[in-house]
């Protein structure tokens, strides 16, 4: 993992109480599509708000926020309160949900149709 803040990447921000493994699964989803991502600390508490800030700060304009049992993929031009995709993270499917969020974030960058439920 490289931490150069200038390198273009999808920014991923997890609320403090969130399971660390979720980041790993998100990163794998982005990696399969060939786009790097980087962990950043959250500035808000609301999932959409965290994701929006991440997207605004990302040089690729795409961010992911995880908080309160939800993962949100955001894009910098979207209205702050409307993430592109927001999915509940359920214990049983956490891995697939996170991998798919990472994959969709990368797809927003490279212009490939999203995988939606």
């Amino acid at each position: 993992m490289d931490d150069d803040p200038d390198r273009p990447a999808i920014l991923v921000s997890l609320a403090p109480e969130v399971d660390e493994r979720l980041y790993g699964w998100i990163a794998v989803g982005a990696e399969e599509e060939g786009i790097p991502c980087r962990r950043v600390p959250p500035e808000e508490t609301d999932t959409a708000a965290i994701a929006y800030t991440a997207a605004r700060n990302s040089r690729l304009g795409v961010g992911i926020g995880v908080a309160s049992g939800q993962v949100a993929v955001h894009e910098r031009h979207m209205p702050a309160e409307r993430p592109v995709v927001a999915t509940a993270v359920e214990e049983a499917h956490a891995r697939d949900t996170c991998r798919s969020a990472g994959s969709n974030a990368a797809r927003l960058v490279i212009g490939v149709p999203l995988q939606l439920e």
């Binding site: 409307r82 592109v84 149709p113």
Partner: peptide, 28 residues
Amino acid sequence: VESLFHIRHEDNGVQFFEEPLDPSLFAR
């Protein structure tokens, strides 16, 4: 659909939308 806010018609003309498009249309 080239972004969440614009499409490119088959004649290459671009159309912009003020409201974001449905994400399921993205890149389609």
